[in-house]
C-alpha cells in the first residue's frame, strides 16, 4: 500500500465522520478538514473520494437551492451502510493508532 492510499483511507473515514455530524457540502467539508489540520491534502482530492463513497452506497446526495438564489448546491448525508462503515473505521483506527503510539512511545 502506497502512502497516498493510506491517506485516502484515512481521509475517507474522516469525511464519514464529518458527514455524520449533519448534512454538509464539499466546500464546508474541506474547511472542517483544514480546521483540524489536514492541510496536506489538496482541496479537490475530496471529490474523487466522495464519488467513490456514493458509488459504494455510503452516502446519498440531494440538490438544494441556496437561500441566496443561484444554482443548486449538492449536500451529502450518510446511509445506514455509511454509519456502519464509520463505526468499523473508528475501530480500525483505534487499533492502528494505539499500536503506532505504543511503538513510538517505547522508542522514545
Amino acid at each position: 500500500m502506497s502512502s497516498s492510499q493510506i491517506l485516502k483511507g484515512i481521509l475517507e473515514g474522516c469525511l464519514l465522520s464529518i458527514i455524520a455530524k449533519g448534512e454538509t457540502y464539499g466546500y464546508e467539508m474541506m474547511e472542517k478538514l483544514y480546521s483540524y489540520g489536514f492541510t496536506m491534502v489538496s482541496e479537490g482530492s475530496i471529490y474523487p473520494l466522495l464519488l467513490r463513497m456514493k458509488k459504494e452506497g455510503l452516502v446519498v446526495t440531494s440538490q438544494k437551492a441556496l437561500p441566496s438564489g443561484g444554482p443548486k448546491r449538492k449536500y451529502y448525508s450518510l446511509t445506514a451502510k455509511g454509519i456502519e462503515e464509520l463505526k468499523a473505521f473508528k475501530e480500525r483506527w483505534h487499533d492502528i493508532s494505539m499500536s503506532v503510539d505504543h511503538l513510538l512511545g517505547k522508542e522514545g
Binding site: 489538496s42 482541496e43 479537490g44 482530492s45 449538492k74
Partner: peptide, 23 residues
C-alpha cells in the same frame, strides 16, 4: 456543477484553481 460551486467559493476566499486540484 459541484466543482463550479466549490471553485466559486474558493475564489471568493482568494484561492485559485491550481490550489484546488493539487497536481
Amino acid at each position: 456543477g459541484e466543482l463550479a460551486d466549490h471553485l466559486s467559493e474558493a475564489e471568493a476566499h482568494g484561492k485559485n484553481v491550481d490550489d484546488i486540484i493539487g497536481g
